[in-house]
Amino acid sequence: MAIRKGCITDVYSWHCKQWISTADGKYRSHCYQYYRGTGNTTLEAEKTFKESGGQLAPYVDEVQFRFWQNFLPDSNRDEIIIGVTDMVQEGVWAAFDGAPVQNLPWNRAQPNGGRKQNCVVINAEPPGFTDGEVFRLQDKDCSEAFDGFLCYKDEMCHTFTDGSKECFWFISNNLNWDFHDANAQCAEQDGVLASVTSLSQLDFLKDAFSKFISHSGVRMTWIGVYSVGKILRHVNGNDIPFGFLGNTVITDDMCLALTDSSSGMPAITNSDSGLSSVTEHLYPCNHTSVFAGICMKNKLGFRWFTKRNFTSSTYLQNLLQIDKSKTTVEGMKTTSAYDDRTSSKSIGFVGVSVIVVVWLFVVFLDLGVRRKIPRKTKKKKGNKQIRPW
């Protein structure tokens, strides 16, 4: 089901905002667009926006909510659908991507629909057009059609050439983080430091960091690329793009960071590429003059750098070494037949047990037969000995 475009009376321009949320401390970069006069249900609107790379806008915090209020019409407006629901669990409100939502600015006596009302709208304007307060939220039936809805695109999400999508987020703290500390912080949020799978993605991360700088004041951030044995790798196992870092000389136990070159941050080594004032540099992994990291969801399960302070290239090399004496080839050299499967071991034990039981049976049988054989003795009759003729 798509938007009934014949019913649209107005499509507002995109309104973008970058901010660090007071709800969870995360940096966000969102662009919003308001559609009016559509007559769609919540699920119809969500399906359409998802197909175009966006979603219904979720509530994050009061700062974002007031930003909406500043650009949405404040008169002669019906309810506006947003991306919040408790369809999964009654009373537990979340965004359509599953992210938890808290401290919603409800209208008085709301939510009040129970299991019959699992979606959320912004009140109509002006107050009195429906029973509502100025710019507050109500729960509504997800199958009910409304005048308009609010969608958004997350500027921290990158779409690749194959159509796949990856979203990133910043972590920041006043503490000095080395590479391992930053990745451990990402791991606490079920992620890893962001990998770089293409040069266009690297430019995307650099552009996102340039916006983050203006809001946080942080001038340097770790991303998930490190060197082991003078070879660059990703912390989540992804391949390094061809030509990455150009002719940069790579030494052992170095990690990648994005820096604001205008800040005068010294670089150990650097590539020739760059976007605006943000450039990528290799630093020792224990470098601690960094206050941020860029995280992504961990999909491949390689979490080598989640332990704090002691993970190094030496640790990884020892971890990946193979003990030849424990390999199958070495085992076959010392035994005529080697099979370490559980099923094979069980069959072997049963076979040996059967042989032992049969052997014992034969031994006991033999002993019993021997006891039954009569002895040849000379018979006596009275006191006379009978002698053969």
Rank of each mutant, 00 (worst) to 15 (best):
L365V: 12
Y152H: 10
G132I: 06
S343A: 15
F65Q: 05
C295R: 05
D139I: 01
T251W: 08
Q385H: 10
Y32P: 00
M220S: 08
K345Y: 11
V60I: 13
P126E: 08
G91Y: 07
E280K: 03
T38L: 04
K372T: 15
P266R: 06
C31M: 08
K165D: 06
A109Y: 15
G39I: 04
S336D: 15
F349P: 00
L175Y: 10
G54C: 07
E155K: 13
L365H: 12
T335K: 14
A187S: 13
G6N: 11
R233K: 15
S143Q: 14
I8G: 03
V356A: 15
V225P: 02
V362K: 13
E133K: 06
E133R: 07
A267Y: 06
F212V: 02
V225H: 01
Q385C: 10
N236K: 04
E46F: 01
I122H: 00
E166K: 09
K211R: 13
A187L: 10
T42M: 01
G348L: 09
S336L: 15
M1L: 11
D239S: 15
S164K: 12
L300W: 05
N118S: 14
N270L: 09
I80G: 03
K376Q: 12
Q317W: 05
G91E: 10
L360S: 14
R371G: 02
D190C: 12
G53Q: 07
V363S: 08
I3Y: 07
I3W: 05
N286H: 11
L300I: 12
F168S: 02
F170I: 05
Q64M: 11
K379V: 13
V120A: 01
E90V: 03
R28F: 09
N76R: 09
Q89I: 09
Y32L: 09
L365Y: 12
E133V: 00
G229Y: 05
C186H: 03
H287R: 07
R341Q: 11
V88W: 07
M254G: 00
N183G: 07
N107L: 04
I20E: 07
W14K: 12
F209Q: 01
M254V: 02
Y283L: 11
K307L: 14
W68A: 03
P127G: 00
I250N: 05
D154V: 02
Q317T: 13
N383S: 14
K140A: 13
I81S: 01
K333A: 10
V11W: 00
F146A: 04
N286W: 08
K333H: 13
T197R: 14
Y283D: 01
F302P: 00
S277K: 10
I355Y: 10
G293E: 05
V352M: 09
W19H: 06
W93E: 04
R308V: 11
R303K: 15
R341M: 10
A57P: 07
P111K: 08
Y35R: 05
R375V: 15
E125N: 09
P374L: 14
